[in-house]
């Protein structure tokens, strides 16, 4: 019966499971273990790729510049695309060089965790446990699930982004520049506008925290949402059988819901990449918003506009 109770909840695959708790406080959970494994896998796979991407020995001639192996080429294509097409236009040459290690590490770490969520590690362990012990406990597993479907984990990553963004802002703009940024440059404006400075300041301060909070919630909600949907779809067949629809009715519903689950799985793979990218890219955008370059760009555009007006 515990199987029925457990499986009737579509979120049972999404929520964290406590492995060890001290005095009622959870200390070790399945998603933490998954995250640590994902960290190792990220480092290991990227290290493998980097060995193929790095320039080989002189003896290889011109072939030493060629990336060997499909996996390394895949990683390289992603790195080059993110760097040249996405980050360079947003952050500029200097900031891209500086923050590329952080941003790429973030992207690949989140991506690995997202993709880990699509592989049913937890269910494999539970089934093996049930098969070998004859137990009816379908929740005996030590790792698995989507680590990024844990709001605490996405908050932790967003907190790092927050720190990086603010440290960059202070270093780039200085305290005065930071305050100017916080008031939207209204301090230099007409005196009448000073009246709305407190409002703008409050909104900007709130924005500082809302931006990373939105990062955390977006990633968390997307991961939870997708996996809850898959769980719900898979439960339809079970519900049909337990509701007494019989072999034909239950079988049809199971078939249809399985087909849909497969289709949603492809969507989930896409979402895994997309959300990892969005988390990383928005962090890059928030960093670049705290730079001088943006203002310089605005100034240049203003100069260009003036020149264009003068020219006509």
């Amino acid at each position: 019966m515990s199987l029925l109770i457990a499986e009737m909840s579509p979120t049972s695959h999404v929520v964290d499971h406590v492995l060890w708790s001290v005095g009622g406080t959870p200390v070790l959970t399945t998603q933490m273990v998954t995250m640590v494994i994902a960290g190792f896998v990220t480092v290991f796979l990227l290290w493998i790729a980097s060995r193929a991407i790095v320039t080989g020995p002189e003896t290889e001639g011109n072939a030493r510049f060629v990336t060997k192996g499909k996996f390394a080429q895949l990683i390289e294509a992603m790195v080059v695309y993110l760097r040249n097409e996405m980050l360079l236009p947003v952050m500029g040459e200097h900031s891209t060089r500086k923050y590329l290690p952080y941003l790429l590490s973030l992207f690949f770490f989140i991506l690995t965790m997202n993709l880990f969520g699509i592989i049913p590690f937890a269910d494999m362990q539970a089934l093996l446990y049930v098969f070998f012990t004859g137990s009816d406990n379908y929740h005996h597993y030590y790792f698995g699930g989507t680590a990024t479907a844990n709001i605490a984990i996405t908050c932790g990553l967003a907190l790092i982004s927050f720190v990086v963004i603010q440290v960059h802002g202070f270093r780039e703009l200085g305290v005065k520049g930071f305050l100017e940024h916080m008031t939207g440059g209204l301090i230099d404006g007409p005196i009448g506008l000073w009246l709305i400075v407190p409002i703008v300041f409050a909104v900007e301060i709130a924005g500082l925290f809302i931006k990373p909070a939105a990062l955390a919630i977006r990633l968390f909600a997307n991961m939870v949402g997708g996996h809850t949907m898959m769980g719900t779809l898979l439960l339809f067949g079970y519900m049909a059988f337990s509701g007494g629809l019989g072999l034909l009715g239950g079988g049809t519903i199971t078939l249809v819901s399985t087909i849909f689950t497969v289709m949603i799985s492809f969507l989930e793979i896409f979402v895994a990449f997309l959300q990892a990218f969005i988390f990383m890219f928005l962090t890059a955008v928030f960093i670049s918003l705290m730079s001088h370059e943006e203002h310089e760009l605005e100034l240049e555009e203003a100069e260009d506009a003036k020149a264009a007006v003068a020219g006509h």
């Binding site: 964290d16 406080t25 959870p26 200390v27 070790l28 959970t29 998603q31 933490m32 995250m35 640590v36 680590a147 844990n150 605490a152 984990i153 996405t154 908050c155 932790g156 990553l157 907190l159």
Partner: peptide
């Protein structure tokens, strides 16, 4: 749960 956040 604080623990996974800190671990993250």
């Amino acid at each position: 749960n604080w623990m996974p956040g800190v671990t993250a």
